[in-house]
Design a protein around this nucleic acid. Structure first.
Length: 575
RNA sequence: CGGGGAGUGGCGCAGUCUGGUAGCGCACCUGCCUUGGGAGCAGGGGGUCGGAGGUUCAAAUCCUCUCUCCCCGACCA
């Protein structure tokens, strides 16, 4: 493509709306244009990246035997009413001229289940895995960061249907491995992360996170074994049992205005790990529950929620704390507490601890679990932290990463097949619901994540496999016939050798072209100028390393091809 | 939805407090000059100041309402 005829206006200045790097660079490199909050046009150069990622996804899913189809963007309310989800989910709803309810599809479980239930008759038809690459619309409460969290976004979603759990699990792992291949091919450093499966049920799920400091999610990974988990899910190692020397007598002490763990610990001259932190939560129906953790630990609300099998759990407000503990907040403690008490495993090992006395300005000291208060259930209820020992192996410790969630594989079980009656006859002629799985990849978000991970002060550095073009060809002097001739010939020869070339033949100064080339970030730049041509040479520059080599125009295509190959290899091996 | 901030040529901003008929840089067009890291000079086109209403001789500026966008929190690919 000749840039003189392309639609690609770069920006020197950063539009004010862009907060994070990928968003800024996408705007500056003319990849996207905002149409409304969270709604973007993919400009030509940006759309090429999207298409590259889609192509990789298609290849890897097709390899697994998945089948592509395309479902509608607009969905009728009836399907959502059937699955009882019409009133949940932030979706854009509207009525047609007859007054019937519709919505922009935020996801497609309902539609795919409807499609499959009409077609599925026999176990002989299973397994089947159907996918689409489609535009979703979710009325996000707060869209931001460009393509990272839009309201309208391109997503690959796949749905597997199996005869039973065992078969479904097989489908799950096939997708897991396909995803790993996809993100490797995209040249991304990522982790498959065990994640919280939410309220949908006991099955497990993995999120795929691209590692980047700007990521919104926190991931803990063992530096020795394979264990990697979202911080919401990351298990804590069972605490060592230490035999205590002596149990002292429980005593009440005045702690005027000392409410936080730090204040109380300092006031009493102990370390925070000697305190039992008592957090009061309230469930959906207004019941209060106490959760105890060691003073230097934090409660993991997700763990508590899952343990209780609840959808929602909130920290109690002042009023609730009063009625549950008959004391003010900041002085809650388990001694004498009448509500249900859950405690983290680490609390079980605490000896002669400090805890709130459920009255203003008072704490107990020398409190011992079981002797001085009863715990209804001990369990892993706290947030794991970096540096802690791995729960799965003996040698490792947790490392912490920031990640961008670009994909998820999820076992749905029979949730939709039962509520929407998607069943088949098994080999005994018995009717059974299909066991489902669903699998998503955010295509635009993957592109954004790739930029977050691959950039420098000059701009984007595209991994070869998802770069909009392979090569940027720079003609530094379009007034000069010899330069023009050489550049034109290279343009043709590079393309004939199978490479995608963006040819900067614009009538602008050399410096301008260099800046643009770096900003747009194609993996290789081929630079043709008067200066080099005098010696019969042109320059080949690797964007990532800024390395330049001089070669003859004749040898350039082979050289560029070899460089692309080796870059590709390195990128696919990245961990 | 709660809290904070902003809407002035395509982009970045000044002007608003103290009303007087809109300005700067980038980008764009023309010419000259220049040509290996976003050159220089000269000339030029483009905005009615998010929208509606009001106050006033006069409103980007003051008042009322409204819309949009951005940032921080809970959701998600």
């Amino acid at each position: 493509m000749r840039m003189s005829r392309y639609l690609l206006n770069t920006l020197k200045e950063v539009p004010r709306e862009a907060e994070i790097l990928s968003h800024q660079l996408m705007l500056r490199a003319c990849m996207i244009k905002k149409v409304a909050a969270g709604i973007y046009t993919y400009m030509p150069i940006g759309y090429r990246v999207i298409r590259k990622i889609e192509a990789i996804i298609r290849e890897e899913l097709d390899r697994e035997g998945c089948i592509e189809l395309l479902m509608p963007a607009v969905q009728p309310a009836e399907l959502w009413q059937e699955s009882k989800r019409w009133d949940f989910y932030g979706k854009v709803r509207f009525k047609d001229r007859k007054g019937a309810d519709f919505c922009m599809g935020p996801t497609h479980e309902e539609v795919i289940t409807d499609v499959v239930r009409r077609e599925l008759k026999s176990y002989r038809q299973l397994p089947v895995n159907l996918y689409q690459i489609q535009t979703k619309f979710r009325d996000e409460i707060r869209p931001r960061y460009g393509l990272m969290r839009g309201r309208e976004f391109i997503m690959k979603d796949a749905y597997s249907f199996d005869v039973n759990d065992t078969a479904s699990e097989k489908s799950y792992w096939a997708m897991y491995h396909a995803y790993a291949r996809i993100f490797h091919r995209c040249g991304l450093k990522f982790r498959a992360v065990e994640a919280d499966s939410g309220a949908i049920g006991g099955s497990y799920t993995h999120e795929f996170h691209v590692l980047a400091d700007t990521g919104e999610d926190t991931v803990l990974s063992c530096d020795h074994c394979e264990y990697t988990a979202n911080i919401e899910k990351a298990e804590c190692r069972k605490p060592e049992h230490v035999k205590p020397d002596a149990f002292f007598k429980m005593e009440k002490k005045e702690t005027p205005r000392k409410k936080t763990v730090e204040e109380v610990a300092e006031f009493l001259g102990v370390t925070p790990d000697k305190l039992i932190k008592t957090m009061i939560f309230s469930t959906e129906d207004g019941t209060s529950i106490a959760v105890l953790v060691r003073g230097d630990h934090e409660v993991n609300v997700v763990k508590v929620k899952n343990f209780l099998g609840l959808d929602a759990l909130e920290l109690a407000d002042e009023e609730m704390i009063q009625s549950a503990t008959s004391g003010p907040s900041g002085f809650s403690g388990p001694v004498g507490l009448k509500i249900r008490i859950l405690a983290d495993l680490a609390v079980k090992e605490m000896v002669n601890a400090v805890t709130g006395a459920n009255e203003k300005d008072m704490h107990w000291v020398n409190v011992n679990p079981e002797r001085d208060f009863k715990v209804d259930e001990y369990h892993d209820f706290r947030l794991a932290e970096k540096g802690e020992r791995c729960p799965r192996c003996e040698e490792g410790r947790y490392e912490q990463f920031k990640g961008i969630e670009v994909g998820q594989v999820f076992r749905l079980g029979k949730k939709y097949s039962e509520s929407m009656n998607c069943s088949f006859l098994d080999e005994n002629g018995k009717e059974k619901p299909a066991v489902m799985g669903c699998y998503g990849i955010g295509v635009g978000r993957t592109a954004a994540a790739a930029i977050e991970q691959n950039n420098d002060e000059n701009g984007i550095i595209w991994p070869v496999n998802i770069a909009p073009y392979d090569v940027m060809l720079l003609n530094l002097d379009i007034q000069d016939d010899s330069v023009n001739e050489a550049a034109q010939e290279l343009y043709e020869n590079l393309q004939n050798a199978g490479m995608e070339v963006l040819y900067d033949d614009r009538d602008v100064r050399a410096g301008f072209k260099f800046k643009d080339a770096d900003l747009i970030g194609l993996p290789i730049q081929v630079i043709v100028g008067k200066r080099g041509l005098k010696e019969g040479l042109i320059e080949v520059k690797v964007r990532r390393t800024q390395d330049r080599v001089k070669v003859s125009p004749q040898k350039a295509p082979a050289r560029v091809e070899a460089l692309l190959e080796s870059l590709k290899e390195q990128e696919e091996q990245r961990r």
